[in-house]
């Protein structure tokens, strides 16, 4: 999550052919990838899909630093190893589905600035939902700063120590409480400034 600002930077500053493609086409492509993931039931088909997505990743010359992001969801897929009773075919199938989905999503996020994604979604989804999504995305950046500052403060004051688990738990909880209160205060200020700028249920994007 901390890499969010870096992803945003890549989406805005990138110059690859995927960056130049319209967000509508990219979202349609993502839907196509999703249908492939849902409908394909043989590992070879999924391997082909994953191979195509990987080729796109490298053709766009995206930094390798973000590649581990595509592997992160594998952590959650591990549970299926136990569900399947360690059957190779099933595990391969699930892992390929996970990797295809995450690579597709990372490709979309890294090549499309988020206001453009939301502007496209605004055409098909209720505007109140898209506005809430936009505000959430914006709020993540605000809260990341608060979280980082709180984490530093905890670290510098030795707020987290394995030898004192209860005290550490109290400090972690207070840090989350602090995050929530700061978030609420920021949301109050945000609402006031939005009203001052004429906000009425909908955020208008550049070009509208």
């Amino acid at each position: 999550m901390i890499q969010l600002s870096y992803l945003d930077y890549l989406a805005v500053e990138g110059k690859s052919f995927l960056h130049c493609l319209s967000p509508g086409w990219k979202i349609a492509g993502m839907l196509l990838v999703l249908s492939g993931i849902v409908l394909l039931r043989n590992p070879s088909g999924l391997l082909l899909l994953y191979g195509m997505l990987l080729s796109l990743f490298f053709l766009c010359r995206l930094p390798l630093r973000i590649f581990p992001l595509t592997l992160y969801p594998l952590l959650f897929a591990v549970l299926f190893i136990f569900v399947s009773g360690f059957q190779g075919r099933f595990i391969l199938l699930v892992f390929l589905k996970v990797l295809s989905g995450s690579t597709g999503v990372v490709l979309l996020l890294v090549t499309t600035p988020y206001p453009l994604i939301f502007r496209t979604l605004d055409r098909i989804l209720p505007s109140i939902f898209v506005t809430a999504l936009f505000l959430t995305y914006r709020s993540i950046f605000i809260l990341i700063n608060v979280l980082e500052e709180t984490r530093h403060a905890l670290y510098l004051r030795r707020g987290f120590q394995w030898r004192h688990p209860w005290r550490s738990l109290v400090n972690i909880s207070n840090a989350f409480g602090h995050l929530v209160i700061k978030g609420i205060e920021a949301s109050e200020k945000m609402y006031e400034s939005m009203v001052l700028r004429g906000f009425k249920n909908k955020i208008h994007y550049r070009g509208e």
Partner: peptide
């Protein structure tokens, strides 16, 4: 509707806090 509009930033902020909570 007015209540929803007034509380939208709060909703966004709490959703963001939940997302960050899930990432720690």
């Amino acid at each position: 509707k007015e209540e929803l509009t007034r509380r939208l930033p709060l909703l966004g902020m709490m959703s963001a806090a939940m997302v960050l909570g899930a990432s720690v």
